[in-house]
Simulated assay, not measured.
Amino acid sequence: MFATPFRDSLTIQTRVIAALFMREIITRFGRHNIGFLWLFVEPMTFTLGIAALWYITRSTHGHHVPIVEFALTGYSTVLLWRNCATRCVGGLTPNLSLLFHRNVKPVDVFLARILLEVAGATCSFYVLTLVFYV
């Protein structure tokens, strides 16, 4: 099969985003200790804290859905969107030197940061869902 210019460009952009993704992991979490695990633990602690507070105070939300499940699904999603926006706000400043490369665009920096946040929040949600299910 012959390579097309679009396929070549897509391959290059995928490699650029993957490299920025790995760079973001290393610069944000480092290479030592708990580092990368913090990507999953941070959303878990926030979600568990909110669920515990609502459960302890016996708060109601005007529906028949149990409060822990409501907090898990609702707060995980809110945390995901909040973190994506917050990480993108200051995304270009530490990566300005990378923009001198022809293939690195500002949208690639944003996509790498968003993908990292989505991966962390999704993994956190699945682990908490599994724990509460068991």
Rank of each mutant, 00 (worst) to 15 (best):
I25F: 00
G30M: 07
I26H: 12
R31F: 08
A19I: 05
R28D: 04
T45R: 14
E24A: 02
F36A: 02
I25Y: 00
I34A: 12
M44R: 04
F21Y: 07
R23E: 10
L39I: 04
V16H: 03
V41N: 03
H32F: 09
I25T: 00
E42A: 10
I12K: 14
Q13S: 09
I26C: 11
Q13N: 15
R23Q: 05
A19G: 09
P43R: 02
V41E: 02
L37V: 09
F29K: 01
N33A: 13
G35W: 01
V16T: 03
A18L: 11
M22E: 14
F40W: 04
T14F: 14
A18M: 13
A18I: 14
I12M: 13
T14P: 03
R15Y: 15
R31Q: 12
L20S: 03
A19R: 05
P43A: 08
S9N: 13
L37P: 03
I17D: 02
L37G: 09
T45F: 15
T11S: 15
A18N: 12
A19N: 08
I17T: 08
L10C: 13
G30F: 05
F46K: 10
I25K: 00
M22Y: 15
S9G: 13
H32V: 10
L20E: 02
H32W: 10
T45P: 06
F21L: 14
H32P: 04
M44G: 06
V41M: 08
P43W: 00
H32T: 10
